[in-house]
């Protein structure tokens, strides 16, 4: 994968009020087939995308939050969540869906996909990318 590009999908929109989060997730899932180096970042209201217990039944809208659980199967297993964005919103890691992936190089051990990073770490991660797409 030496010629693979580094793609980061930066999610800054809350999940239900607009279509950006769900259509963004579609891009990530389709993009996973291209064997690039993929990660996701959740900043600002984007952290609400990973909130547990989303139930859209009474809104009449489709609940797409279970699709985040599929990311691990698509080898999208680095989801960086900005610590400051969580704190500003009164959330902790325990409020987020427990997303995991299975590491085939480590006897299929189940590992967490969500990594809480602070603003300075996220800034470094952004700088390492080739392609940045915002949803």
């Amino acid at each position: 994968m030496s010629n693979a590009k580094k793609f980061m999908y930066i999610n800054r929109h809350a999940p239900c009020g607009t279509v950006y989060a769900v259509e963004g997730l579609e891009v990530v899932l389709i993009g996973a087939a291209f064997e690039q180096d993929v990660c996701m970042a959740f900043v600002g209201d984007g952290v609400f995308q990973l909130k547990q217990d989303q139930d859209t039944a009474d809104t009449g809208m489709k609940n797409f939050s279970p699709a985040y659980r599929a990311l691990g199967d698509y080898e999208v297993n680095r989801l960086y969540v900005e610590r400051e964005s969580l704190e500003e919103r009164g959330l902790t890691e325990d409020d987020l869906m427990p997303l995991t992936w299975e590491d085939e190089d480590d006897d299929w051990a189940e590992k967490p996909s969500i990594h809480i990073v602070d603003r300075a770490q996220l800034s470094d991660l952004i700088e390492e990318q080739d392609i940045l797409l915002n949803f």
Partner: peptide, 21 residues
């Protein structure tokens, strides 16, 4: 066409710019 065309554009181009909300 499909979303793969966007990913391919990212891979094949020197720069990808996004205009949106």
């Amino acid at each position: 066409s499909g979303l793969g065309q966007l990913i391919e554009a990212g891979i094949e181009s020197d720069r990808l710019l996004v205009f949106g909300d």
